[in-house]
Simulated scan of single mutants.
Amino acid sequence: MKLIFVGDPMCSWCYGFQREMTTIAEAMPALEVQVVLGGLAAGSTQVLDDAGKQFRLGHWARVEQLSGAQFNREALLARKNFVYDTEPVCRAVVTARLIEPSANLLTVFGAFQRAFYVDGLDTTDAKVLAAIGASALKAAGFDVDADAFLSVWSSEEAVRVTREDFALTRRLGVSGFPSLFVELNGKIGLLSSGYTSAASVQQTLMRLAA
């Protein structure tokens, strides 16, 4: 049995779900978890104006109320000419997978989430992403520097594999993030769409395993 997590590091509901997802993975260490990057707003060219900021702050308030996740609102409001393109950060998670296939991608995914939502960093900037990604891999015991990370992130392979993740997201019929699927006996089924509790997911997984 495999759990497939589909999300985007710059999706606020995915950020709110981080603690639940971590709880699931830690409670079921034998469970294989596949991380698929969804590309919430991949390729967007729209500059985040005041109305867009207020729209996101409204989402953030709901996520915070439900999950307890903390947000750096001041950093969002202070952004100038910010384009909410999530392809670069999705590609950064894919880059970590390409560099170290054995790395815990949920941890790497979480590092980019914290960088954007808590530290207020620009996770559309290549050099910022490289620094975050290298740091996350180093913390996990892998010897990777920012320059090496940036080189892979900039490669045609990283772009191609990221697009493959986006294509898989479409084939799965994902209608919202985060989404969880279960692959069992060669068949894939939707487990949940949107924020849900770790306890609910674990109960379903244990029932399926039995």
Rank of each mutant, 00 (worst) to 15 (best):
K187I: 09
D8F: 09
H59Q: 15
G110P: 07
L106N: 11
A78I: 10
V94H: 01
A146N: 07
F17L: 06
Q54S: 09
T23A: 13
G141T: 07
S200K: 10
A167P: 01
G16E: 01
D145W: 01
Q34M: 10
L208F: 09
M28A: 04
L106V: 06
L48N: 04
L150K: 04
Y84C: 05
L48Y: 03
L77S: 05
H59W: 11
T107L: 09
W60F: 14
L205R: 03
Q203N: 15
F5R: 04
T162W: 06
V89L: 06
T162P: 03
F166K: 04
A61V: 01
G43S: 03
S154L: 00
G110Q: 11
A25R: 13
S192A: 15
A69W: 11
A210E: 11
L137K: 03
F82I: 05
V6K: 01
Y15V: 05
A148T: 13
A41P: 00
L31Y: 06
L168D: 09
P88Y: 04
E32N: 07
S44W: 08
I99C: 08
Q34E: 15
F55Q: 12
T22E: 14
L208K: 09
L205D: 02
T196C: 14
L205H: 03
V161Q: 14
G38H: 11
H59F: 10
S151E: 14
D122L: 06
A41S: 12
W153T: 00
R160Q: 09
L184H: 12
L76D: 01
Y195D: 02
I132V: 14
F17Q: 12
G194L: 06
A136D: 08
M10R: 12
G7Y: 08
G189K: 14
A30S: 14
V6I: 13
L150N: 06
R79G: 05
D49Y: 06
I4A: 07
S102I: 09
M1D: 03
F112G: 08
F181C: 02
K138A: 15
V128D: 00
G52N: 08
